[in-house]
């Protein structure tokens, strides 16, 4: 198996936590992992992305070749479109629908949704609303991880297990909230992919 994922968002939205959960689950399944992150200047409210590559064969390049990415998983709708040149023809674009507006010329959000729907395998998830129902808007990144779970090529139970490990030191309440977020995200994606 091979899953190449681009995680997208705005600096501070928590895409590296998503990467950490998937990465740990992959390692526990004896898969090879490479994950390129953005540090430094771009983190200050700018567009950020992480290339996450999982495979049962050794991974060479830290960067995903253009046109061959299996999934763009984004915590912000406009950011999901920034990397479509990487997406393969059959690749999935899965994104939070809630815009993060920190620039003056943020485009009309309906136009963004239109472009996202133009991509055959795309899912728009209102992760912020789901996260608020689960308990805190802070877990919207984990809602998005849940929404991607069916397409990752990794056991769902492994994702749950790595959430337990990664969030363990923050206490059982936080662990449960993240597990709920993961499950609710997965269900929301399933409802949408059927409709």
């Amino acid at each position: 198996m091979k899953t190449d994922i681009i995680l997208a968002g705005v600096g501070g939205q928590g895409i590296l936590s998503i990467a950490a959960v998937i990465g740990m689950a992959a390692i526990d399944n004896d898969l090879y992992v490479k994950q390129a992150e953005v540090h430094g200047m771009s983190q200050r409210g700018g567009a950020v992305q992480s290339h996450l590559r999982i495979s049962d064969q050794p991974v060479h390049s830290d960067l995903i070749p253009a046109g061959s990415c299996d999934m763009i998983l984004s915590v912000e709708p406009m950011e999901s479109l920034r990397y479509v040149s990487f997406l393969s023809e059959k690749g999935w674009l899965i994104t939070n629908s809630k815009p993060f507006v920190n620039i003056n010329d943020y485009p009309d959000v309906e136009k963004i949704y239109g472009e996202i729907r133009n991509i055959p395998n795309s899912l728009l998830i209102d992760a912020d609303a789901i996260a608020a129902e689960v308990g805190s808007r802070k877990v919207s990144n984990i809602v998005m991880l849940g929404a991607s779970a069916d397409y990752l090529g990794i056991d769902f139970s492994s994702l749950e297990q790595s959430i337990r490990v990664i969030f363990g030191r923050k206490g059982e309440e936080i662990v449960q909230m993240n597990i709920n977020a993961l499950n609710t995200g997965k269900k929301a994606a399933r409802v949408q992919s059927v409709s």
Binding site: G46, A47, P65, A66, G67, L81, V84, P107, E115
Partner: peptide, 26 residues
């Protein structure tokens, strides 16, 4: 790949609607 003479299949064009999001002071 291009330096090796391989025609690389790029993905889709980035839609015009996508605006720049440069780093900014917090």
């Amino acid at each position: 790949a291009r330096s090796l003479g391989i025609q690389v299949q790029e993905g889709r064009d980035i839609p015009q609607v996508v605006a720049n999001r440069p780093p900014a002071l917090c």
